[in-house]
Amino acid sequence: MVFLPELTRAYRHNLNGSSLERGATQLEVKDVSLRFGGVQALEDVSLAVRQGGIHAVIGPNGAGKTSLLNCISGLYRPQRGSIALQNGKRHELTKARPSRIAKWGVARSFQNIELFKHMTVLENLMLGRHTHMRHNVLTALLYWGPAERQEIRERELVEEVVDFLELQAFRKQEVGRLSYGFQKRVELGRALCIQPAVLVLDEPMAGMNTEEKEDMARFILDVNELAGVTVVLIEHDMGVVMDISDRVTVLDFGRVIADGEPAQVSSDPAVIEAYLGEQRAA
């Protein structure tokens, strides 16, 4: 990897699961349409996520941002279109189970925290390693040989994520008892443990105060710049979006109304109209 190797030297594991060169198309969404009964949630949505970038998806409420993310992670199946992930080979995501998509390297966090709240922080992060482990009921029942060695091996990577996200103090605490901000951070950690090719974050800063937002923004930048992980995120805080992302796609009523660099998008008349309404002559 080309990303500032001198800074990542302390970590032995590479959290970036992609083998692509920086700038190559990692994830390609093409003409995706999703309909729930009479509601057209997405209509011919196309976008390309480049390896190594932070790609923000923005838009007013109900624009279809989360629906798009759910299509990418396999929770929804679009009626038309294709979503292709390049990781080793081309994977078509629209017809695969979510667990399969996770195995191919798409990790995500949820808008309303979906952690395993009765488990400890460590156990939650270890679940992020699930796809990298071989599971055998018999050795598990005996906690013998390969089962034990595997737990220890995966724990090493998990500890690096703990260190990376500064979660040392909470390792063995039940996540349900952590504050909202830390829960969001654990959820980011769990996704990171997958060693994702694409890290999909659904409103990672929703409901946070300024300080927590700054922390989260720093972690996302670290994940992207130090670990080289490609990030796709939905965010409502325009300041954050414009500051950290290097590409922005704007959705409105299920359609892409703008796509490009942050500066370019923020001055786009269609975007201004979608957010502020039509400008009227006085």
Partner: peptide, 12 residues
């Protein structure tokens, strides 16, 4: 605890 998230982290 959370079956949708379980599926999303790769649990079958």
């Amino acid at each position: 605890d959370q079956d949708i998230a379980a599926e999303a982290v790769g649990v079958n």
